[in-house]
Design a protein around this nucleic acid. Sequence first.
DNA 1: GATGAATGAGGCTTCATTCAT
DNA 2: CATGAATGAAGCCTCATTCAT
Lengths: 212, 212, 212, 212
Amino acid sequence: MAYRTTHKMAERKEARRQKLLSAAVGIFGRKGYHAATVPMIVRAAGSSVGSFYFYFRNKEDVFAAALESLGRRMAAALNAAIAAAGPSVPAQMRAAVKALVRFLAENPEEARILIVESSGLGKRLEAVRRQVIENHTRGVEQGLRALAGQLPPMDPAVVASCWVGSAYEAVYRWLERAPHERPSADHLAEAIAGFNLRGIGASAKPDERRRP
Amino acid sequence: MAYRTTHKMAERKEARRQKLLSAAVGIFGRKGYHAATVPMIVRAAGSSVGSFYFYFRNKEDVFAAALESLGRRMAAALNAAIAAAGPSVPAQMRAAVKALVRFLAENPEEARILIVESSGLGKRLEAVRRQVIENHTRGVEQGLRALAGQLPPMDPAVVASCWVGSAYEAVYRWLERAPHERPSADHLAEAIAGFNLRGIGASAKPDERRRP
Amino acid sequence: MAYRTTHKMAERKEARRQKLLSAAVGIFGRKGYHAATVPMIVRAAGSSVGSFYFYFRNKEDVFAAALESLGRRMAAALNAAIAAAGPSVPAQMRAAVKALVRFLAENPEEARILIVESSGLGKRLEAVRRQVIENHTRGVEQGLRALAGQLPPMDPAVVASCWVGSAYEAVYRWLERAPHERPSADHLAEAIAGFNLRGIGASAKPDERRRP
Amino acid sequence: MAYRTTHKMAERKEARRQKLLSAAVGIFGRKGYHAATVPMIVRAAGSSVGSFYFYFRNKEDVFAAALESLGRRMAAALNAAIAAAGPSVPAQMRAAVKALVRFLAENPEEARILIVESSGLGKRLEAVRRQVIENHTRGVEQGLRALAGQLPPMDPAVVASCWVGSAYEAVYRWLERAPHERPSADHLAEAIAGFNLRGIGASAKPDERRRP
DNA sequence: GATGAATGAGGCTTCATTCAT
DNA sequence: CATGAATGAAGCCTCATTCAT
């Protein structure tokens, strides 16, 4: 019976950690890293500072955890979209862009953490943030290399940066607008995908993407 | 009569202000807004806290001043490049991208202020920062509208964001690399310009840009 | 279960607050509001700045708390004296004067806070300070109105001010003298009471106070 | 001619000093000692900090000067009133009260400096302030001693304090009210004088004051 | 494990005062 | 003499982190 109790305890423990983590995401996304305080987070989580420091080494630590969780979830979303897009690399890339936009649009607090509120936080955190973006960029870069022969000559590293940069900036600006006065997330995704696909020299038309 | 020497004094005054301002740019660019402290700035400027608060209302104020100066200088650089590029709009846009990259490559501290080290600035400062980028974006948007008929259909607002986003992100990533292991700024600019011009559906080849 | 010991903790908490508060009273009474610094107070209380700001919002806040506690205790002392003085209003008023003098003589630091060390407190604090005196004055005014028919005609509002002003100033001057070269607090109280009772036209002799 | 120039210069010098001094009175009376800043004062005087420190040793110094000037002018007003009141001591004392009230009512900023804003400013200034009030109190005390035989027995020192305390407090409270909702200064003065004269056991009726 | 009181380093800012022009 | 830029000491306050209960 002991291990069962232990099991439940572990579950509770993890649950509490998650509650703190998601409260932190909310506060960080809304206030930014510096304006967020540990008391704020624990209040939002219905917990206590003591608990906070039991589950996380320090403030930086939750932020990193938030970023990492975000990275995992984003990667999962992208991979799922890519897998569902069939074998055509351009189609995959388009699907990935759309998945990214949808993900960020549905998780605006996390989007803010990734795009806005995590710059300039010092070596450690900047590294974690870049990790997320680098992963993404690297994925794009691979796609580009796979298509190398069929595209105009270009520097894949730079162009991959352009690809993700254009997406993030466009989403950022879109998020800044009041929800009722901005186009749909799908329209946004389409526009970004079009720009990027044309940018790499691939056909930009969504309906033609698998045709010969 | 000594106290009438208003002229030289005004010069010295302005000089001191500039010294503080550029010291602030340096610190902000290197450490970020939050990690930068007023004592750091005044030490770097060879000045004193008292002087600092004589010339600027507060820390936020210098940052805004830095950002504004940066915005002005950047706009000047872009405009000069555009003016020199002749009447072809695509040529102008290409020239602007190259000027932007060159400017940021030559002023890496200011680039960092604008792109990286600016998280959690609070409404006011974030607005000033965005202003700089918005101005830029708006310029691009105008270019796009001017070319409307000759380009594939696209949402100019979104595409303008993509345009500047791709540039900033690519420059950012370029700046992160050690100076000796990165391609030349010109190569970078060329690659970005290529991507962007293709992205909007214009010819991407630099040599064709002025032909009818 | 340890963390359930809420009772003892609450006691300790209140004790700590009280210690800070009374240390503050001491410093404020000795140095005045402006010359008193938070570090001084916490040192006197054997506490820390952090704790100070845990218990009080800011320096103004402690001062207000000190003033309010003082007001309560003073009112209690006056009311007790009045209650013990029997039904004769003049006797009550005399008793109140004596109680006031005794209270201030026994709490010289608080007396200083109330009477002397309180310049330039800003609207908010000055209002709290005046509140204490106003309460007192209002009490006197009520007494005067109760006696209206039996006294020479007078403006009760002004006369009430005179009543309390004479007491505070006399006490202040008395406190300024070195303890060994001043008359007894009782003598002082008697003299003030005599002056004030004569001032309102009531019999000033203590022994006659209850006769018809 | 030289001495004439010197003369004029001395005049100008004195004039500038006076301008600073009266500007200081205004600011001190309105803001209090601590909230008043040297820049504020010099701006109000149309002068400069440099000048300020030429004419006064420091901030404390102007405050003391303001207080001293106030003391002189008040003493002059009281003495004039006393001289005009004829030989009857009670009449003189009544006249002095009325003159005091009138003076303070006509110079509310100075009244604030004397009564409110100069407490708790440290040894030196407190001494200057007390000087002003002590002078006044001493005058009252002398009157009391002159009347000794004709009055009920009382402690002249304490009673003199009561006398001035009642006046200052009543005036203070009167000044706090909005100008349009307070009784006339004369009414105030009459009420205070009545209280005080009764308080020392002298006849309180103004019209009977010179009768045998 | 949970709690929240306690700590103190360190940031921002003000302002009296000085002194070169 | 006038001016106002320059200085820096000192105060208030925040908040990440620790630790006794």
